[in-house]
Write a protein that binds this DNA or RNA. Structure first.
Length: 256
DNA sequence: TGGAATGTTCGGCT
DNA sequence: AAGCCGAACATTCC
């Protein structure tokens, strides 16, 4: 569920329920190691809510609560607790419920703002991205998934961005022509912006903080469309493995 | 039954 | 050294 557009949507919908509220108590219902490290967040007011790559950052009076949705995490305001509720933030008014079926997500209190990842995929300039690409030998798809290279993109938006830019997922970054690199930058911004406008992609069971699904999955051009005709040229969409992840592309539109 | 699912990390190999 | 590969984490759904 959670790549940049989904996380951004959650941040936007949960921010008005959290800003200015005090976290009275943090209840954790999981054996995962992050359980013990949230206590310093208790009793503190939430100054604001931000996104850092795929992390949801609650800026507290001292330190931050860094929430990662993993693969199946959901953060909802005033939702019923269920069998997959892993944590609850009890506020001075209302509460925030963190559900996560697969438990790849996490909630952590950190002293200082995280800053080890690459530039944000929505904010990076064309010049900066082109310079970063020029210095890398790796395959584009793998690089786009690497949060230390560029933060925010995941499997859906990597495939959709490469299709929009008409670039093959196995292309070597440093060998991209300038026009193609520029096209990739534009495609990333356009795909992410469009997805945010649609409230993200609700594959499986993604919902925002108010329980509403997103609609961008209806506009996926290649992701999970293996065998179906390319919406531009009609050739069947292919699926290969890159960096152990399913990768969907049109072999006609995205030449090597 | 096996494989795949929006993610990340770690160890080993080249 | 960078990059690649496989495995691991936990659970559900074809």
């Amino acid at each position: 569920m959670p790549e940049l557009p989904e996380v951004e949507t959650v941040v936007r919908t949960i921010s008005p329920r959290l800003r200015g509220r005090r976290i009275v108590e943090i209840c954790v219902f999981t054996k995962k190691a992050w359980g013990g490290s949230v206590a310093p967040g208790e009793g503190q007011a939430v100054r604001r809510v931000r996104r850092y790559g795929k992390f949801i950052l609650l800026e507290l009076e001292r330190g931050f609560l860094a929430i990662h949705l993993g693969m199946t995490g959901k953060l909802m305001a005033n939702s019923e607790h269920g069998p997959y509720t892993r944590a609850v933030l009890v506020l001075d008014r209302g509460e925030i419920v963190f559900d996560d079926v697969r438990q790849f997500g996490s909630v952590r209190w950190v002293e200082s703002e995280p800053g080890m990842l690459g530039p944000d995929a929505l904010e990076v300039s064309a010049e900066d991205l082109m310079a970063l690409l020029g210095a890398r030998r790796g395959r584009l798809k793998a690089l786009l998934l690497n949060q230390s290279f560029l933060r925010g993109i995941g499997n859906i938006y990597a495939d959709e961005s490469l299709f929009r830019a008409r670039i093959h997922p196995l292309a070597i970054a440093s060998r991209l022509s300038k026009p193609r690199a520029r096209r990739l930058h534009a495609a990333i911004i356009e795909v992410l912006t469009d997805a945010i406008a649609k409230g993200g992609s609700s594959i499986s069971d993604y919902v925002d903080a108010d329980g509403r699904p997103g609609w961008f999955q209806l506009q996926h051009k290649v992701y999970q469309r293996t065998g179906e005709p390319c919406l531009v040229c009609g050739a069947p969409i292919r699926r290969i493995l890159v960096a152990q992840r399913s990768t969907h592309y049109c072999s006609k539109c995205q030449r090597a």
